[in-house]
Amino acid sequence: MAFNSPIEWCDHTFNPWIGCTKISPACDHCYAEAYDKRFGGSRWGPKAARIRTSADNWKKPLSWNRKAEKEGVRYRVFCASLADVFDNHNSIEQGWRDDLWELIDATPNLDWLLLTKRPQNIRGMVPWEWFFPTNVWIGTTVEDQKTADQRIKYLTQIPQAVRFISSEPLLGPVDLSNVEWFDGLRFNALEGQLHDKKGFVFKLNWVIAGGESGPNSRASFPDWFTSLRDQCAFASVPFFFKQWGDWVPGEFTDRGGWAMNRVGKRKASPLLDGALHQAFPTVATQWEAGS
Rank of each mutant, 00 (worst) to 15 (best):
S166C: 13
S166W: 04
Y154K: 12
W247E: 00
P281W: 05
H29D: 15
L100A: 02
I138V: 15
W17G: 00
T285R: 11
S54T: 14
G214M: 11
P159K: 10
D99E: 15
E212D: 07
E8T: 11
E143Y: 09
K60W: 07
H277P: 03
E33Y: 07
V201D: 00
F200V: 13
K146Q: 15
F78K: 00
R74D: 08
P61R: 03
Q286V: 08
P61D: 09
R255P: 04
T141N: 06
A80W: 00
P270D: 14
G210M: 00
S227R: 10
G214K: 06
F234E: 15
S217G: 11
A26R: 00
F164P: 01
D196C: 12
A189P: 07
P127Y: 11
D254S: 12
A26D: 02
G41K: 12
G256Y: 08
D273F: 05
E288F: 10
E71H: 08
A148V: 08
P108I: 07
G245K: 01
E93Q: 14
W206Q: 04
E288P: 04
C232M: 05
A32D: 04
K37C: 09
L228K: 01
R151D: 04
H29N: 15
F202S: 03
F241R: 03
L276R: 15
F239I: 04
S42H: 13
T147C: 08
S269V: 13
A275Y: 09
S24D: 12
G40L: 09
I23D: 02
C10F: 03
P169R: 03
K267Q: 15
G214W: 01
S54Q: 07
L170K: 05
G19V: 04
G256I: 08
P169V: 07
Q157A: 11
G184K: 02
R218P: 01
N90G: 14
L113D: 01
F241N: 02
H195D: 15
Q231A: 06
F182R: 03
T156P: 00
I152D: 01
G192E: 06
A279Y: 07
D105Y: 06
V283K: 13
L185W: 03
Q286M: 13
S227W: 03
E8Y: 05
D98M: 08
A83T: 02
A83S: 04
T253V: 14
S166V: 13
S269G: 10
F202T: 06
G172L: 09
C20H: 02
W58F: 12
F164D: 01
G264H: 11
W247D: 00
G95K: 13
I122W: 00
T226M: 04
C27W: 03
